[in-house]
Design a protein around this nucleic acid. Structure first.
Lengths: 248, 248
DNA sequence: CGCCTCATTGATCGTTGTCAAGCCGGGTGG
DNA sequence: CCACCCGGCTTGACAACGATCAATGAGGCG
């Protein structure tokens, strides 16, 4: 019964040694890659390539190229984008520290989108073939993979359910609530304001609206005292009311 | 197009014996459940419960109940729906013969939506715990699961990318193109017209528009000769033009 | 300084949601 | 067999929201 109540990441044994390359990584205490992999008996070393830097604006992988690796964000942030039939670019996801990117490539063994760094970023690379080949005799590792994919599915599903059905100002507010939550859980800093790790254009694209509409809605949310945003730093002064409005 | 057979399904040995309950199932020649499961050495019998009927309008599972099983549709069709914060119901997916439903429950071990039969339907039930417990010593089975989830992710991802960014009439047309493709690949019947296995209200909800808007768009597509739809049977007279319009 | 990209604000137009009425087909009961 | 009802669907008139077009401002970098 290796697969108890929850597939959650938290059930891995709080492990002892952390890999040398992980020293100083802000994610280290909640990152499973920083610890030995589940059921690792020492032969998993070739799976992970740790803390690999990507510069702002640099591309991590390109659409329609062969899928080889998954990547976990250590610091910074990534976006994935695709092209519409008309040739416009649409942002399909943002990836923050702790998130795994590349899962959309599992089915076709081809990346389904282009992945770019929004700001200077570090990722850990996971060789998927090697990962799978170790799974057979490591049920814990297998469960971890399915859990990881499950989280991605949940996120996509919930995105899909609100990104179209909510009103514009609700979408914007929900985006910032969600972002706040993900950023604070990743790094436990409760500093005065979080920095916005992507461009507003990209946010607009992700939320299926024009930059103009986003800007107007931001102005209104500021007026209503639901969001402070200045110089790429933001806070949510009244999360209770915000949650009530967005239904989160 | 987007129907390259995914990761692993096609690589199973075209197997010999089909299970008795699968005789007469329309899906039998493309269904992997009809054949012994990958790497099955005989002890997988308890995983699958075959061809289990659900009546039109009946609920298969309910949101926020414990996740136990995945279901593959044999015949008929299912929908999944959720409630918005305002209390409206939104259809989040349609499942046709060959599709696996319940994958959104993987992360939380709770179903994330309500699943209903649109018409009289048959499903095969897969006990997920048992499935996983067999994975350890059956790498093929493991790969199959990941492939199955991968297909789901791909579908969700592509839904997400077009269901919001396209114009209304494009969304409608794309929906019918997609439906046509999925229905014909499931049962190889190239009959004169396919029957629409769901209500228009649900289609409207799924496409994020009102029934009125859907109706108007259907009327226009008929006028333009891109879609025939009468008495719940439909054909696509000009798939080439339709594809060009929707970017599929 | 000038160029560039990003962000903001205003004016106008078009598409879609809303509200309302009418239609059609299936089911029920007299 | 027909009258009736009800849910699903269609069509029309109107209002509202967001996209488009255009102009301006703010910051980064050669």
């Amino acid at each position: 019964m290796h697969m108890k109540s929850s597939l959650a990441q938290s059930q891995w044994p709080v492990s002892v040694a952390t890999a040398p390359a992980c020293e100083g990584c802000g994610l280290v205490e909640r990152c499973f890659l920083a610890k030995p992999l589940p059921d690792d008996d020492g032969d998993c070393a070739d799976i992970v390539r740790r803390r690999y830097p990507i510069e702002r604006g640099e591309r991590l992988y390109r659409r329609n190229t062969p899928f080889t690796s998954l990547y976990q964000v250590c610091s910074g942030s990534l976006k994935t984008q695709r092209e519409t039939p008309e040739g416009d670019l649409v942002v399909t996801g943002f990836f923050l520290p702790g998130d795994v990117v590349g899962i959309d490539a599992l089915a076709d063994r081809q990346y389904q989108s282009d992945a770019y760094a929004n700001i200077d970023t570090e990722v850990c690379q996971l060789d998927f073939e090697r990962l799978l080949s170790h799974c057979a005799h490591k049920p814990g590792l297998n469960a971890w993979i399915i859990s990881m994919i499950g989280s991605y599915v949940r996120r996509k599903d919930s995105d899909l359910s609100w990104s179209c059905s909510l009103q514009t100002h609700q979408r914007v507010l929900r985006f910032f609530l969600d972002l706040h939550e993900r950023l604070t859980q990743a790094s436990h800093t409760q500093s005065s304001g979080l920095s916005l790790p992507m461009k507003k254009q990209d946010i607009a694209s992700y939320l299926h609206m024009t930059p103009e509409t986003l800007s107007r809605n931001l102005a209104q949310l500021r007026r209503e005292g639901l969001l402070h945003l200045h110089d790429n730093r933001f806070t949510l002064p009244d999360t209770t009311r915000a949650r009530a409005i967005t239904g989160l």
